[in-house]
Design a protein around this nucleic acid. Structure first.
Length: 340
DNA sequence: AAATCGGGGTG
DNA sequence: CACCCAGATTT
């Protein structure tokens, strides 16, 4: 069955800033930014990132703080840490030039199976399929795959389905064609099967079961967390501390934090006394934010504990001027906009 | 294999 | 409101 996938792509492809040339570094940056991120949201970050870090060596030689500053608000902040590590790794091991082989690309921090395949196919014309969420949805529908998406068996079956018609002579365009097709035609809801270039070979279209695929895993319920931010400002300076890297907003800055498992104020006082036994807290007022901050798998309930005394006894604390705040989460930025 | 990591657009 | 997005890493 002849498929006019590339013809469809040539006529209908999206014009995107990382498609203007085939610089492997630019492809790399775009792929990291777009991980689990919508194209529309990523474009501005991509442009600002390349303006600040125009090449690998500039990125490698920049302080980590500068990368986090650009990454603010984008989410999944480990990506910022890892692309910086990846740039330093590339300078050290590959003289600042991305390697061309799939195997070598996957050694670079932050580059996994998908991203390595995307860079190799788009920038180096290597005949490999870059299996992202877009391609998984197409494969699941074309092949009526009965496995749950996310399992290794599903991925193997998805690759087998795509191999049947993937244009290995044009792998870069082939992958991007499938991504655009999935984003524009084979959408999660209301897929436009009537104008899809793959409809002649699609099992789901033939059986009218488009919305049954892909099969999804049962979702994890949201966890509730309770943050008590100690807000102290003096002489136009505000107290901050850096979050651990093994939790949400890792590496970003926030107000000194006490976390509890309930909204009970007594729990906060006990947790504070346990964490800082020798410190007296002079609270001027407590303000509970009415709505929780919503993340994919968590709800963050926040209370601002305005404090009169300096927080000098808390370790790893720094005071920042309100005209020079450190990189911080969307939640902290909203709070800052309220209190400054 | 399962859990974890954000934020925002969409129907 | 649920769902999902050019996934990788850790456990």
């Amino acid at each position: 069955m002849a498929i006019n996938l590339l013809a469809w792509y040539q006529k209908n492809h999206r014009q995107l800033p990382w498609r203007e040339d085939l610089d492997p570094y630019k492809i790399w940056v775009s792929e990291i930014i777009l991980q689990q991120t919508r194209v529309a949201q990523g474009i501005e970050y991509y442009l600002r990132f390349l303006e600040k870090f125009p090449d690998i060596k500039t990125l490698a030689n920049s302080p980590m703080e500068a990368v986090y500053t650009i990454w603010q608000g984008l989410g999944y902040y480990r990506r910022a840490f890892l692309i910086h590590q990846g740039a330093k790794f590339t300078v050290e091991h590959y003289d600042g030039l991305l390697p061309k082989s799939l195997h070598e690309l996957k050694k670079i921090p932050g580059i996994g199976t998908y991203t390595a395949a995307a860079i190799a196919s788009i920038a180096f014309n290597e005949p490999v399929i870059a299996l992202d969420g877009n391609l998984k949805r197409i494969a699941a529908r074309v092949g009526c795959i009965k496995e749950v998406m996310g399992t290794s068996v599903f991925e193997k079956q998805a690759m087998n389905e795509l191999k049947r018609f993937f244009p290995f002579n044009c792998p870069g365009d082939g992958n991007q064609a499938l991504m655009d097709l999935s984003a524009l035609i084979c959408t999660p809801k209301n897929p436009q099967c009537r104008i899809c270039p793959l409809n002649a070979i699609c099992c789901a279209h033939a059986t009218g079961t488009q919305m049954d695929y892909p099969l999804k895993a049962t979702k994890i319920p949201k966890k509730d967390r309770y943050f008590w931010y100690l807000v102290h400002s003096k002489n136009g300076l505000i107290a901050f501390s850096r979050r651990n890297f093994n939790d949400i907003w890792g590496g970003l800055w926030e107000f000194p934090l006490i976390e509890t498992s309930s909204a009970n104020e007594l729990d906060f006082l006990m947790a504070f006394k346990k964490k800082y036994p020798d410190m007296v807290l002079r609270v001027s007022k407590m303000v509970t934010i009415p709505k929780p901050h919503i993340l994919s798998h968590q709800r963050i309930f926040t209370t601002l504990v305005h404090v009169n005394n300096p927080l000098l006894n808390i370790p790893d604390i720094e005071y920042f001027d309100k005209n020079n705040f450190p990189p911080s989460s969307t939640l902290v930025k909203k709070i800052l906009a309220q209190i400054v």
